[in-house]
Design a binder for these strands. Structure first.
Length: 862
RNA sequence: GCGGGCGUGGCGGAACCGGUAGACGCAACGGACUUAAAAUCCGUUGAGGGAAACCUCGUGUGGGUUCGAGUCCCACCGCCCGCACCA
């Protein structure tokens, strides 16, 4: 018997698939379509186990759907712009483009070793001019449609690297690379108006359009969008006073207008215009605002920060109570980005306002009476009251419940012309400007005379200039230092002007790549996407990726698709019909006595203790964590493929844990998967030719009912499990089937041929190379990747007899065998006639017999 | 703090709609083969008791509903994830 050798067999089948163009997307639109997509990778240069898991899952689905008769779209590309390429340029002097494309080449070779059923003819990288030029076109379309805005906004500015940092690049208030204290800086930025779509992005989460999404992701998006209903209203300054810049009032936003009678102060954000207006002539205010801006933006800093305010020399009038004047503060806990950047404080019924009022000894006036409380007893001492109740101390609102009081006060304020009902969102517009070289240039030109002008479509693409890698040694965006690229004539007046040097956030690149994949490459030069192709393929039927993209990427892509619909490129608004978020790949960590992390390869484990491989020094086994370079708890997929083959790697990574949970990579598990591969081969090899020699469509032999039942039951279960993303269970069923097959040594040849033929097609999505080799040996027709999925004969699943447990007083005491068709009476009689049951009933009186046909019998006796 | 999820053998996990808890895999142990080891194959494996047939206990803890609870309800404990001064 020839030992199975994946090193020879796996490349052989990949070559055959290529020669047969087996996975080229078919133009056949008669078959039902199925678009399976995994989040495309950043081309770091090497694949990791997370990729293997992600793409193995998608590949199982893709191969399964092909076998089930679907026209499948399954593609691969590269999310290729972004910071790491510039960092590499800084460190190694390689041009970001050179570095990126060489990584892509390397990573493609590694990915292809996994044996994915992918149509590589649709591959592209987002840094291809052929891709990003159409992104520029989309941006211009959005601009025309009013979905683009340019305005000032605060950014995290790293003064050493001279660049803007994303929030996650700010660690404890310092730049992640330079370590410099990050400043808040106001810059003109480009925004996509995602808030225009907030209402629909929210509505779709609940109206069934995203019923194929996990609840937790929908919930996270709902919270992120953060809709609230309330009131916007103006507080006039008392005594006709004005702020230094002439404002006579301040507009606040509240979701609790019912508590207006409990208002005891007004607070505005440090960057509110009113604050700036006073700060211009007030050193104290200036100092206070500066202090607020310095405070860390980290969660911890916010958590610990004490509420502080700066009293402005002005007071506001209460809208309902003549003569009540409210002090006005600048307060560090008010956010300019939400509502109007100003609030009225009601300390009795809001924790933050309560803290603030305590500190500054402001009035605490209760206005909501808890249910069945006596107004005389109610005192707000240690904490505010947030719960429901009826209004009191509140004039025309007295006696109303909170909800009714909210409505009543909004109506009153509206009638007074002092404000109006208003819906607010937490979601902000999407700032897409990045002061970076390695990204898609934003197609705009700044002219001193004409202002900001779009680049005319005929001048697209705005290509990134060829640069010497040395430019990356200087901090900042090289595009700013390239007058020959930057200086261009104004498209409107032909006068001197300069290009926009910001490039797009890379989330823009990944917001429409799936629509590009759906477009036949023959149409790639004609437009961003082909609408007809998109109408056929979209939405993506199954999207698979990490939970870390639950909010940003998925929300941006949902917005982008709506925007593309607005300007006529696609017809859908939800791009992903079904979403699956897979868990991480983890591994134990190892540290030596000095605390240095060790690679799993450097460690030998025996009997629960670990030693260093080269010198036997003791090693501490640490917790199981997500594989990461920093902790060195990584296993290279390429090494595993070298050792066990891609099929074993695919099998193991799908077998151990449910796909949505984390999976722990262990060498024992990988070795176990390899054993399975070898075992299937050894099971199949003695039967060379039987499938080809046997007419499986002919009348089946009568014998071997047990094996046939096992075959058909396994096919039914595995089909169901794959359909529901339960790969671990599908694999368990296949193991059971193998065990059954082994025990069926005396089954007849026809039934065995049927069993083997089914087995190979069931494993084909998981271990495609092994399946092809087995299929060929068995004499199956063509490639197994083109073979139809095995069918189930439901008649074979039924059993003549069933084994039923019998309980006495809820405890299992015996098993009886009855005909599957036995009715309640017959089953009860069989149970009561059983010797073990009788023994347990001795001396007892039967009170009741519960018979659940096909399930259980329970005899209640006392 | 708010929101969501999860607690089952030595480990990963299974258990449809409340119906034989622990499928399947890993590890461990015993045996076969071998000069030996590896690989492979056969068997055992929730805990306790018993020579055995069997019996008792057992799904984080404490209650409850039910003929019957891992599954449903209440309270508590622990862990994980998301958001976090959003007015």
């Amino acid at each position: 018997m020839a030992r199975y050798n994946p090193k020879e067999i796996e490349p052989k089948w990949r070559t055959r698939w290529n020669e047969a163009s087996a996975f080229k997307t078919s133009a056949d639109r008669a078959r039902p379509k199925y678009y399976v997509l995994e989040m495309f990778p950043y081309p770091s240069g090497r694949i990791h186990m997370g990729h293997v898991r992600n793409y193995a899952m998608g590949d199982v689905i893709a191969r399964f759907k092909r076998a089930r008769g679907h026209n499948v779209l399954h593609t691969m590309g590269w999310d290729a712009f972004g910071l790491p390429a510039e960092n590499a340029a800084m460190q190694t002097g390689a041009h970001p483009g050179t570095w990126t494309y060489s990584n892509i080449d390397h990573m493609r070779r590694e990915l292809q070793q996994i044996g994915l059923a992918i149509d590589w003819s649709r591959e592209f990288a987002t840094c291809d001019v052929g891709y990003y030029r159409w992104q520029q076109k989309l941006f211009l379309d959005f601009w025309n449609a009013g979905l683009v805005e340019r305005r000032e906004s605060y950014v995290n500015w790293d003064p050493v690297d001279m660049t803007v940092l994303a929030n996650e690049q700010v660690i404890d208030g310092k730049g992640w690379r330079s370590g410099a204290v990050v400043e808040r800086k106001k810059l003109s930025q480009w925004f996509l108006k995602i808030t225009d779509k907030a209402e629909d992005l929210l509505a779709a989460l609940d109206d069934g359009r995203l019923k194929g999404w996990p609840d937790n992701v929908r919930l996270m998006q709902r919270n992120w969008i953060g809709k609230s209903k309330g009131l916007r209203m103006k507080f006039r300054f008392a005594g006709d006073a004005k702020s230094p810049d002439g404002a006579g009032d301040v507009e606040v936003y509240t979701t609790r207008p019912d508590t207006l009678f409990g208002a005891s102060f007004i607070a505005v954000a440090p960057d509110h215009p009113l604050a700036s207006s006073f700060a211009a002539a007030d050193k104290g205010a200036r100092a206070f605002i500066a202090e607020c801006q310095k405070a860390g933006t980290s969660q911890e800093a916010i958590d610990k920060a004490e509420k502080k305010g700066f009293r402005l020399p002005i007071e506001a009038e209460h809208p309902f109570i003549g003569g009540r004047r409210l002090p006005v503060y600048i307060a560090n806990f008010i956010l300019m980005g939400y509502g109007t950047g100003a609030i009225f404080g009601c300390p009795a019924h809001d924790e933050r306002d309560f803290d603030f009022a305590k500190k500054y000894r402001l009035d605490i006036i209760p206005v909501v009476l808890p249910p069945s409380a006596d107004p005389a007893d109610v005192k707000i001492v240690d904490e505010p009251y947030i719960g429901p109740g009826a209004l009191y101390n509140s004039d025309f609102l007295n006696g109303l419940a909170v909800d009714a009081a909210i409505e009543a006060s909004i109506a009153k304020i509206e009638a007074m012309g002092r404000g109006e009902a208003s819906t607010q969102f937490r979601l902000r517009d999407w700032g897409v400007s990045r002061q970076r070289f390695w990204g898609c240039p934003i197609p705009a030109i700044h002219c001193e005379k004409c202002g900001v002008q779009p680049v005319p479509e005929k001048d697209l693409p705005v290509e990134l200039p060829e640069v010497d890698a040395a430019v990356f040694k200087t901090p900042g965006n090289p595009l700013d230092r390239m007058p020959e690229w930057r200086n261009v004539p104004c498209p409107a007046c032909a006068g001197p002007a300069r290009r926009e040097t910001d490039t797009f956030d890379t989330f823009v690149d990944s917001s429409w790549y799936f629509e590009r994949f759906a477009t036949d490459p023959a149409g790639w030069a004609k437009g961003p996407v082909d609408k007809g192709d998109c109408d056929y393929w979209l939405p993506v039927d199954q999207y698979i990726g990490g939970i870390e993209h639950a909010i940003l990427h998925l929300l941006y892509a949902r917005f982008f698709t709506r925007a593309m619909k607005d300007v006529g490129h696609v017809s859908i608004d939800e791009p992903f019909a079904n979403l699956f978020t897979q868990g991480m790949v983890t591994h134990a960590t190892y540290q030596d006595a000095e605390g240095r992390w060790l690679l799993p390869d450097e460690v030998i484990i025996e009997g629960g203790t670990a030693r260093r491989a080269n010198d036997g020094a003791p090693v501490r086994i640490g917790p199981i964590e997500k594989m990461s370079k920093s902790k060195k708890n990584v296993v290279s997929p390429v090494d595993i493929i070298e050792k066990y083959g891609a099929d074993a790697a695919r099998w193991f990574i799908l077998s151990d844990s449910p796909p949505e949970r984390d999976v722990e990579w262990t060498d024992a598990g990988a070795a176990g998967a390899w054993k399975l591969v070898a075992r299937i081969w050894e099971t199949v090899e003695p039967y060379a030719g039987v499938v080809g020699a046997c007419d499986l469509s002919a009348a089946p032999a009568k014998a071997s009912a047990d094996l046939r039942r096992a075959t058909h039951a396994t096919v039914a279960a595995v089909t169901e499990d794959i359909d529901h993303f339960r790969f671990n269970k599908a694999i368990a069923r296949i193991y059971e089937f193998l065990n059954a097959l082994k025990k069926a040594g005396d089954a007849d040849g026809w039934a065995k041929a049927e069993a083997l033929s089914a087995l190979i097609r069931l494993i084909a999505p998981f271990t495609p190379h092994l399946a092809e080799e087995c299929w060929e040996v068995l004499g199956g027709e063509g490639l197994v990747c083109n073979a139809p999925w095995p069918t189930v004969d439901p008649a074979l699943l039924a059993k003549d007899e069933v084994v039923l447990p019998v309980q006495v007083n809820g405890k299992r005491r015996a098993e009886i065998v009855v005909a599957a068709s036995a009715d309640q009476k017959a089953t009860e009689a069989a149970a009561l006639g059983d010797a073990d049951v009788r023994r347990h009933l001795e001396g007892l009186t039967i009170r009741k017999v519960v018979v659940v046909p096909g399930r259980i019998v329970n005899i209640v006796a006392s």
